[in-house]
C-alpha cells in the first residue's frame, strides 16, 4: 500500500530480534515505533508478534486476583457516563449485514479503482467547488471518519497534504475497517444509533449511516468521472431506493433548518425509473401529511444527483403540479441534504 518496500526489508532482521522485547512491553521510544511501523507492513513479523504477545499476556493472566467488589459499580458507571449504552434491542430486520454493507463496499471499490487509474496530472483536475482530487479524497475521508469514530475505530486524520498514494491508502484503510467491523458485527452493530454527517438529529442506525457513506462515495466518483469527461455511473435500483428512503425522510427537517418549513402543507414526490417510488412528504417535521398541495415528478436517479447537490432546481428535469413555491422550497431542501 504505497510503502517503501526497500526500507521494510532492510529493517526486517533488526525488528525480528526485537519482537520478544516488544511483546513483553520492553521496548521504549524509537525502538517501539520502529517495530510498530514494520509490523504494519510485514505479515511474517506481525504473525510472530501476535503469537509472542499471546504468550506474554498469559504471563500476567496467570495471576488472577479478585478486585474489591465495590470497584465493579464504579467502573461500569464511569464507562456508561463516557459512552452511553445503546437503547434496549428491538426487533432486527431480516436483512443480513452483507445486504446493508454491499452498496458502500461497491461504491468504495469503484472509487478506489477510479483513483488508482488516475495519472498525476489528472489528480490536479479541477472539479466541483473548485476542488481537485486530493481535496475531494480528504473531504470524503473526513466525513467517513464520523462513522469510524462512532464505531470506536482509529480515524484517518487530515489527508489534505498527503501524496496521492498515501491519501488514497489512508481513505481506503479507514473505509475497509468500517466495512470489516460492520460485516462481523451483525444486527447488533447495524441497529446501533450513530450520528450522520450533517445536522441530522437525533442519531440514526448504522445501516442508514452506511447508506449515506455509499451515497457520498458514489457522488464523488461521479465528480471525478465528470471532470475526466467520462459518462456517469448511476446506482442500481436497490441503491437508489436506499438513498431515496434516507433522503426523502430527512426532507422535513431540512426544510426546517433552512427556515422553509410550511406546517400543515404536504408535497407528493413521484420519482420514476429503477429504485423510484411515491412519497407523501409533510413540509414540516413532526406533522402528519395531509392532502398534497403540490406534486413533483422527476427521474429517481436524477433526484439522487439533486440530493447530492449535483443538480439544481434549474438543471433538474421535473414537473410541478400545484403550488410552485412549495415545490421550489422542497427542491432547495433536497439540495441541502448533500455532504459537502
Amino acid at each position: 500500500m504505497g510503502q517503501d518496500h526497500g526500507l521494510v526489508d532492510a529493517e526486517h532482521p533488526r525488528v525480528f530480534e526485537l519482537l520478544g522485547a516488544w511483546a513483553l512491553g520492553a521496548c521504549a521510544g524509537q525502538d517501539a515505533d520502529d517495530v510498530s511501523e514494520h509490523l504494519a507492513g510485514c505479515g511474517t513479523c506481525a504473525a510472530e508478534a501476535a503469537r509472542l504477545q499471546q504468550a506474554a499476556a498469559w504471563l500476567g493472566a496467570a495471576e488472577d486476583v479478585s478486585p474489591p467488589p465495590r470497584l465493579r459499580e464504579t467502573v461500569l458507571a464511569t464507562a456508561y457516563a463516557r459512552r452511553p449504552p445503546a437503547p434496549a434491542a428491538h426487533q432486527a430486520p431480516a436483512d443480513g449485514a452483507e445486504v446493508d454493507a454491499e452498496p458502500y463496499a461497491a461504491a468504495m471499490i469503484d472509487l478506489d479503482e477510479l483513483l488508482a487509474g488516475l495519472a498525476p496530472e489528472q489528480w490536479a483536475a479541477t472539479m466541483v467547488h473548485g476542488w481537485r482530487v486530493p481535496e475531494l479524497v480528504a473531504h470524503l475521508a473526513s466525513n467517513d471518519s464520523t462513522l469510524a469514530a462512532e464505531l470506536g475505530l482509529t480515524t484517518a486524520g487530515d489527508l489534505a497534504l498527503e501524496s496521492p498514494e498515501a491519501a488514497r491508502s489512508a481513505w481506503r484503510t479507514q473505509a475497509d475497517a468500517v466495512l470489516r467491523l460492520v460485516g462481523g458485527g451483525g444486527a447488533a452493530v447495524l441497529d446501533r444509533p450513530v450520528h450522520l454527517v450533517g445536522p441530522w438529529e437525533p442519531r440514526y442506525p448504522v445501516r442508514q449511516a452506511l447508506v449515506q457513506r455509499a451515497f457520498e462515495t458514489w457522488i464523488h466518483a461521479e465528480d471525478i468521472r465528470a471532470a475526466l469527461g467520462r459518462p456517469g455511473l448511476p446506482p442500481d435500483a436497490r441503491r437508489v431506493a436506499g438513498i431515496l428512503a434516507l433522503g426523502v425522510g430527512l426532507l422535513p427537517v431540512s426544510l426546517r433548518l433552512l427556515g422553509l418549513e410550511h406546517p400543515g402543507r404536504t408535497a407528493r414526490l413521484l420519482l420514476s425509473g429503477p429504485g423510484g417510488g411515491r412519497w407523501t412528504v409533510p413540509l414540516s417535521p413532526r406533522t402528519e401529511p395531509g392532502t398534497p398541495d403540490v406534486t413533483i415528478g422527476a427521474d429517481a436517479v436524477e433526484f439522487c444527483y439533486l440530493i447530492g447537490n449535483r443538480r439544481s432546481a434549474a438543471t433538474l428535469r421535473h414537473t410541478v403540479d400545484g403550488d410552485r413555491t412549495l415545490a421550489s422550497d422542497l427542491l432547495r431542501a433536497a439540495m441541502a441534504l448533500g455532504c459537502d
Binding site: 500476567g60 493472566a61 495471576e63 488472577d64 486476583v65 479478585s66 478486585p67 470497584l71 465493579r72 467502573v75 461500569l76 464507562a79 456508561y80 459512552r83 452511553p84 449504552p85 445503546a86 434491542a89 464505531l151 470506536g152 467491523l181 458485527g185 447488533a188 452493530v189 441497529d191 446501533r192
Partner: peptide, 23 residues
Amino acid sequence: LLAGDEAALAELYDQFAPMVYGM
C-alpha cells in the same frame, strides 16, 4: 460491545477483571 450493549461490558468485567487487577 460494539453495539453498545451495557450487559456486555458487565460480562467482560466479570470475566476479565481478576486477570487485569491481578496483573
